[in-house]
Design a protein around this nucleic acid. Sequence first.
DNA 1: GTGAAAGCGCTAACAG
DNA 2: CTGTTAGCGCTTTCAC
Lengths: 352, 352
Amino acid sequence: MLVYRPSIGLKGSTFIMASIKDVASLAGVHRSTVSRIINGEGQFRSDTKRKVEQAMAELNYRPSAIARSLATASSNMTGLLVTYYTGGFFGAMMDQVQAELDLHNKFLITAQGHHSAEGEREAIRRFHALRCEGYVLNSRHLSDNELRELAQEPTPFVLLDRTVEGLESRCITFDHTQAGVMAVNHLLGQGHKKIACISGPLNRTNSRQRFQGYVNALAEAGIAFDPSLCAEGNYGRESGYVAAQQIYQAHPEITALFSCSEEMTGGALQFFHENKVAVPQQVSLISFDSIDLCASFYPTVSAVHFPISDMARLAVEVLISQIKHEEIELNRQFEPQLRIRNGDCCLSLGEG
Amino acid sequence: MLVYRPSIGLKGSTFIMASIKDVASLAGVHRSTVSRIINGEGQFRSDTKRKVEQAMAELNYRPSAIARSLATASSNMTGLLVTYYTGGFFGAMMDQVQAELDLHNKFLITAQGHHSAEGEREAIRRFHALRCEGYVLNSRHLSDNELRELAQEPTPFVLLDRTVEGLESRCITFDHTQAGVMAVNHLLGQGHKKIACISGPLNRTNSRQRFQGYVNALAEAGIAFDPSLCAEGNYGRESGYVAAQQIYQAHPEITALFSCSEEMTGGALQFFHENKVAVPQQVSLISFDSIDLCASFYPTVSAVHFPISDMARLAVEVLISQIKHEEIELNRQFEPQLRIRNGDCCLSLGEG
DNA sequence: GTGAAAGCGCTAACAG
DNA sequence: CTGTTAGCGCTTTCAC
């Protein structure tokens, strides 16, 4: 049942959701009594309770989270900033974030940064406007300094997959360099010496680190770094295709390739397939992955796993502890793990 | 700069975001003047404006969307219900929904239905609690009747990819049956006669329709329907693998396969690769797709395109027109389109 | 156990 | 052009 209200200050007349007042007057009690019953605070005569519940049911009453927010000065909302919604990567993050928030009965507000600092700022403005109690940032374009400044403001936030000096307790981190090393070491362990690399955009810290892992691993193995064995992609599928093409045409003698994202790996695979380059017999692949796309390629591709889902989950835990001012002790550092798949070339190449 | 307030009713003391009152008193004007300036209503002496803007800047003032909602009785929020966040499909929808909402300066609230009617109801409750002005439902588990009842309530909503009698103006639809027919006709046109089908879960309307398209197309071509050429998957990758296996082992003589989802197609391809079944030379494939996964398989796979992104975009347009009570005339019906890819087997099989 | 009253931050008539 | 007043729907002291 709906409440009809002659419009006050509104053009025409409208049906509006029942308010606590409507419930109160229908039940013949005061608003505050209804409020207490809803929130289960204190005790009430059982018939009062019954009357109120009946009135709520009859009016199909739903407390307004907005009014409640205003009255309690807590919005119960949490923000999540990501770069883009598309692609599956974000969905994985969001899934975990929502699951954790559901446990705490909090609302989720999402926003996209669209690959620009201004986009990310805009998203944060939105969180502030909504008076989010806190937010999780998967920020790639705000400077360390800007983030440190932001940390001066009262709203808590957590940085997902980022390291900022001075904000350690807010950072959920992953060692991309070490992950790169592990990936390349896996290839080295198989005897590969001519190892190419498709990196992500080198203006991004994490991409640079992954690439650095490649460089470090080669150095440790005493293999000279050859820049012509490397190409820079943008993490997208197409760029992986182009990069593989560029590298392979210049160096058909490569026996292995390290690709810094699963999408680029897909592109590279396509290039190899189209050009009858046998994977992994002729060229072995290792990739980064986070949503296990590499398990669905043909052949399946081994990868160092970037556990964005787990990290997202933890980010929310940390954030909530900050909102509650309970400083919990949690390991905010995630370690890379190798996921060997059967498309891996397990033969040892010897000195070849 | 933050405002310090001795706590009133709160334990301890807290730093709180500046309110319109703080701005007003710092600028030496009344709250309502500040409000007008923020909203650009009417005109003001330039020095008043300057003082106020300066005060806002100094206090780092951000109007509270929540308080505003309460005062204007419009939350500016829009809900979006999907089944799951993971998998990329949802990201594509959300991307378009957000883009359209951004144009209208509205907030987006998302929720997952988790494959149950109760989950979907819970999501809608959340939208109501937040006083969303409207919401888009990609509902798969609420009955037509329940939706019709929901339509009695004052909050407008739009159904994405669903047809409910009596709610036509709220439905953004796609002809899954026709799409299925087109897919199979494409194979028939190539001369295939032994065509297998991996359907989605047959308890879902849309899956059933896609499958029906397969049945209809065969019937029209005068080819007898053989249930042992069909297997039911759950739209997931794994199920595609299993289904392909089941069908192929029983019927290695098939020359073509219609897969009702892109993920299942990926699974089927993996089975074929592992078992040295050449695609498309030995078995031609056609698939449904919506986020163009089929373009990234090897070989690429032709598909009937289910334009969920465009549909999502339109859903928001329709919703907003309903919120504004402007009944716009829009075609809410989307047509399937074939996307032929070069992995397609273009040879004619003749009578074989 | 329940009512009265004030207030959350903002907007919207109505004066002047 | 700007101040006054009331009110959005709810919670939260404080009385009784």
